[in-house]
């Protein structure tokens, strides 16, 4: 006889797409990142991919895109979950620091991805923008101002979470602060990318499990050991 105690079986369930957490890493790959910094950044990104892949929920919900700014800002990885982008990109240093152009490109990518979610009926969480630099922007002043205005508007209307991260003593923390009206930028102690990306993957995991009305408290205390607030 069949099991009459199980009214609903797995095959009776509808298949809804997993709600997505779009994350754009906007990374400085200018000439000053040459050597150990770019190597450590590559290792940090690799560990980030690994940590997301190992998390049952984040693996399907996190969608990563990477915009780099060295010679010219470019999207080196477009939004997709870890399953569809198994190879971790190799970042190479060189060129100037056109931060404003890169952030505008990152925001364009996020807007485009959100529209794709809407068109396909996929639910999503508030997007994240991680902005990392070791210097000061030297691209177009107008583009920088436009990027700051766009980012601040999105953050203030609760449509974007931004993490501005300074790498090393030369990072222009004042410019980074202008991107983040709610949260002060962090300066990494040394080149502790690995710790930052481990923290980021845990935060993605917590967000991807959050429910309506739940404020995801980011573990700022946990950052203090490897970054300065």
């Amino acid at each position: 006889m069949a099991n009459v105690d199980l009214l609903i079986r797995l095959e009776d369930l509808v298949t809804n797409p997993t709600p997505r957490v779009p994350i754009c890493l906007c990374l400085d790959t200018s000439g000053s990142m040459e050597g150990e910094p770019i190597e450590e950044l590559n290792e940090g990104v690799r560990l980030f991919y690994e940590a997301i892949r190992e998390d049952e929920t984040a693996m399907y919900s996190a969608e990563i895109s990477i915009v780099t700014f060295g010679d010219i800002p470019q999207v080196i990885v477009d939004f997709a979950n870890i399953d569809r982008q198994p190879d971790v990109p190799k970042l190479e240093a060189g060129g100037l620091t056109p931060m404003g152009e890169a952030v505008n490109l990152a925001l364009d990518c996020l807007e485009k991805r959100k529209q794709e979610y809407k068109d396909k009926g996929v639910d999503y969480y508030q997007p994240w923008l991680v902005l990392m630099t070791d210097g000061a922007p030297n691209g177009s002043r107008r583009e920088l101002e436009r990027a700051i205005t766009r980012t601040v508007e999105l953050v203030e209307s609760k449509k974007l979470t931004v993490f501005p991260i300074g790498i090393g003593p030369q990072a222009d923390m004042n410019v980074l602060a202008q991107f983040s009206p709610a949260r002060s930028p962090l300066r990494l102690q040394g080149l502790k990318f690995r710790e930052f990306f481990a923290w980021l993957s845990q935060s993605v995991s917590r967000t991807s499990q959050s429910t309506p009305g739940e404020t995801v408290e980011l573990d700022v205390q946990g950052i203090k050991g490897w970054a300065q607030l």
């Binding site: 009214l7 609903i8 369930l13 509808v14 298949t15 797409p17 396909k120 009926g121 429910t211």
Partner: peptide
């Protein structure tokens, strides 16, 4: 919403047929 994850097709706005059985 937790139950709806399993029994409500968000894109089509339809209920899973098993709801009738329930």
């Amino acid at each position: 919403d937790g139950t709806a994850d399993s029994l409500y097709d968000r894109k089509r706005a339809t209920l899973a047929p098993v709801v009738r059985k329930m």
